[in-house]
Design a protein around this nucleic acid. Structure first.
Lengths: 139, 139
DNA sequence: TTAACTGCAAATCCTTTGCACGTTG
DNA sequence: CAACGTGCAAAGGATTTGCAGTTAA
């Protein structure tokens, strides 16, 4: 099911803005902020507004089309890949990356067992220095 | 080493406000927000200001006396227990709790191996429904 | 004594909201 | 055509900052 169908099936309308915003997000792997998405779209849609980006993201989050990330740098970042996985932010170049290979299901099961919570969400955020910046540092 | 000594050894002055703020934090296990600490202290220190709480927390964080938590509810929470451990927030009563028993060192080592980052910080935040609220729900 | 700290008020930054106009279904 | 969406501007809320008066060392 593509975004247009997903939106309609959840009772939302399909607009050029929503499609464009999703495409920006989907096309890159950089976990952009609302501002980054907005700047990216201004060229093509001169009337695009930041408010529309935020409103769209709220809908996308609600219907499971994006995951909102708190990476500890005072603004939300968005990920089109909504399966649970950890993220890393480089404190030097500020990039945010996905990390595969961690068994998040096991961690969540452990958390449920140890806490007796019914866990409904998780945010595994790491910060550090990325390989590129480490290399740059050693010169 | 107590807070007074720690502050002095790091070149900061020891003030009644700083001691009071630390004591509020240390005395309870509720991971309070700046606002909660401020409200808690107004009785005893009528002139206490929110700005002082924030400025104090910044210093405490810098010298390793507190850990700042992002629990996804739009405001920072503070934890006097700075050893790495996961936190849980109940989405119904909004409490934030510590969780012991997860091997965070192993997770961090896995993250470093898989990503090749030098990891300097981590934030393991879970949300869900706490045992009390689950019980309340089932009535 | 003096460098640091406090606390008020104002500023800042991200995000949300109100509303008139435009668009989708 | 009725409900929903857009985009501007203004509001909101957490946090930070400037600064004059106060305090720790």
């Amino acid at each position: 099911m593509d975004i247009a169908q997903k939106l309609r099936s959840e009772g939302f309308k399909v607009t050029p803005q929503r499609i464009a915003i999703y495409n920006v997000l989907y096309g890159q792997n950089d976990h952009p902020t609302a501002e980054m998405i907005y700047q990216n779209l201004r060229k093509e849609y001169p009337t695009m507004s930041l408010a529309t980006v935020y409103k769209t993201m709220e809908i996308f989050e609600r219907i499971g089309l994006v995951k909102v990330l708190d990476m500890g740098d005072d603004c939300s970042r968005y990920d089109w890949d909504t399966h649970n996985h950890p993220h890393l932010r480089c404190t030097q170049c500020n990039r945010v990356e996905d990390l595969d290979g961690i068994d998040v299901e096991k961690i969540q099961a452990d958390v449920e067992r140890l806490s007796e919570y019914r866990v409904t969400g998780q945010q595994l955020a790491f910060e550090g220095i990325c390989p590129d910046c480490l290399r740059r540092e050693s010169h």
